[in-house]
Computed example of a mutant assay.
Amino acid sequence: MFGLGFLGLAIYVYTIYDVVSSKFAGNNDKLVWVFIVIFLPLIGTILWFLMGRKTASR
């Protein structure tokens, strides 16, 4: 059970890192995504990988 919790935490931390290191067209887009991921951890992570990475440019 500990392994699943650690895996979930690792994915969550990676998601926050991915959002912060991404470049966005608008100034507030990054801030909005960070808030979404922090306040809605599971849903925010899923939304980021399904929708957010497409809107952010690398």
Score class of each variant (00 low, 15 high):
K23R: 14
V20P: 02
D18P: 02
D29N: 12
W33P: 01
N28Q: 08
F35L: 15
Y14P: 00
D18L: 06
Y14C: 06
I36V: 15
V37T: 05
I43W: 10
L7P: 02
F6V: 04
V32T: 14
D29Q: 12
N27L: 03
K30M: 09
F24I: 06
K30N: 11
K23S: 09
K23V: 13
L42K: 05
K23T: 09
A25L: 09
P41C: 13
V20H: 02
N27H: 08
G26H: 06
L7T: 08
S21F: 01
V32N: 12
A25I: 07
P41E: 08
I38L: 15
F39G: 09
V37H: 00
P41S: 13
K23H: 13
N28V: 11
V37Q: 01
L9Y: 02
I43M: 13
I16N: 05
V20G: 04
I11S: 04
S21G: 00
L40V: 10
V37G: 01
I43Y: 14
L31A: 11
I36H: 09
L40H: 12
I38F: 15
K30Y: 05
N27P: 02
A25T: 12
V32L: 15
T15Q: 04
V20E: 06
I11C: 03
V34I: 15
G8I: 00
K30A: 10
F39E: 03
T15G: 05
I38G: 07
K30F: 03
S21E: 06
T15S: 03
L31D: 08
L9R: 04
A25S: 09
L7R: 08
L31N: 13
S22Q: 03
L40W: 13
V19Q: 02
Y17R: 07
G26F: 04
V34K: 11
I11V: 12
I36Y: 12
K30I: 11
F6K: 04
D29W: 00
I36K: 15
S21H: 10
L9K: 05
K23L: 14
Y17F: 08
D18C: 11
I36N: 15
K23N: 11
D29K: 07
K23E: 10
G8T: 02
A25W: 04
D18W: 00
I38P: 01
I38N: 10
I16E: 08
I16R: 08
Y17Q: 07
F39I: 12
D18Q: 13
Y12D: 02
S22I: 02
S21P: 00
D18I: 02
S22P: 01
F6L: 10
V34W: 07
W33T: 01
A10E: 02
L7S: 06
S22C: 06
P41L: 11
Y17T: 08
G26I: 02
Y14T: 08
G8C: 05
F24T: 10
F24S: 14
S22G: 03
V32D: 13
G8W: 04
A10H: 05
F6H: 01
V37M: 03
F6P: 00
W33V: 01
P41G: 14
D18N: 13
